[in-house]
């Protein structure tokens, strides 16, 4: 799906529009004037050196940054399908249900595999057994985990391997049928084989979901992402289709980073 179209006017419909976004922890700015349109049903990778603000940007999209005291958006906006998600009357729970998130370190709850997957359904007050079963199966299938765990759905989730746990977290996130999946370095703590499985999974998931992934690995970005955004020091340096960004970077900083002579 990687395109060679010229970057400025991507004709694809944008699922997430980020405009002039500035963000600060207390008085310390973390993001400065980010403008970025993330296309629907595509995988967008955010790359950049440590501390460049890519995770912060990702965490703005489902407003999970609200948890951190003193963190706030100082200017700009994020629109998801035309809705400004920082309006005061946004239903935060609904937003997070529609924008799923997978964290760097897999974090299943200390409950059974089954209960982990149906967690978001129970939150919305669904307790009908048949419905829960159906969702659990679909989500685990979608996360390519069903065959491995179908016989032990009611055992502890913490007993799974690292890669399985991470896929369980993906299943848990997609069980609430989101439109967008945010992934914060989902493979950072995994071995290469588990990483490969997750990457395969991403290609499957892209058909249904808009995916934003933060990654440290440029190889992973080239393997998975349709578009890649390079960030540094809280600013967006360059955002283009992945191959173009890596092969013909426009910006010298990008060039330095992708060729490995950075910092």
């Amino acid at each position: 799906m990687v395109t060679d179209l010229p970057p400025p006017a991507a004709p694809l419909p944008a699922a997430i529009r980020i405009a002039d976004l500035c963000f600060a922890y207390h008085a310390k700015p973390a993001l400065q004037q980010i403008t970025l349109d993330l296309p629907a049903h595509q995988i967008t990778a955010l790359i950049g050196p440590s501390g460049c603000g890519k995770s912060t940007l990702l965490r703005c999209i489902n407003r999970i940054n609200d948890r951190i005291p003193g963190a706030r958006i100082t200017a700009g906006s994020i629109h998801i399908h035309g809705i400004d998600i920082n309006r005061p009357d946004i239903d935060l729970q609904e937003l997070r249900r529609r924008v799923g998130m997978v964290f760097q370190k897999s974090n299943p709850f200390p409950k059974s595999i089954y209960e982990n997957v149906v967690f978001s359904l129970r939150l919305s007050g669904i307790h009908k057994r048949s419905e829960l079963d159906a969702t659990a199966e679909t989500a685990l299938h979608a996360a390519a985990l069903w065959d491995e765990v179908k016989d032990r759905l009611h055992t502890r989730a913490l007993g799974l391997s690292g890669g399985q746990q991470q896929r369980l977290c993906i299943a848990r996130a997609i069980a609430s049928q989101p439109d967008i999946l945010l992934m914060d370095e989902p493979c950072a703590a995994l071995d290469p084989i588990a990483t490969l499985k997750i990457e395969e999974l991403l290609h499957q998931l892209k058909k249904q979901y808009t995916i934003v992934i933060v990654t440290h690995s440029m190889a992973q970005a080239t393997r998975c992402a349709d578009h890649t955004a390079f960030m540094d020091l809280g600013r967006l340096i360059e955002f283009r289709p992945t191959l173009q960004l890596f092969n013909t970077p426009h910006h010298p900083q990008t060039l330095a980073y992708v060729t490995g002579s950075f910092g």
Binding site: I80, H81, D91, Q93, L95, R98, D179
Partner: peptide, 15 residues
């Protein structure tokens, strides 16, 4: 996304 307006709540938050 179907029906993105559902992100906007009417009245007080649920629960």
């Amino acid at each position: 996304m179907n029906n993105p307006e559902s992100l906007i709540r009417t009245g007080l938050p649920k629960g």
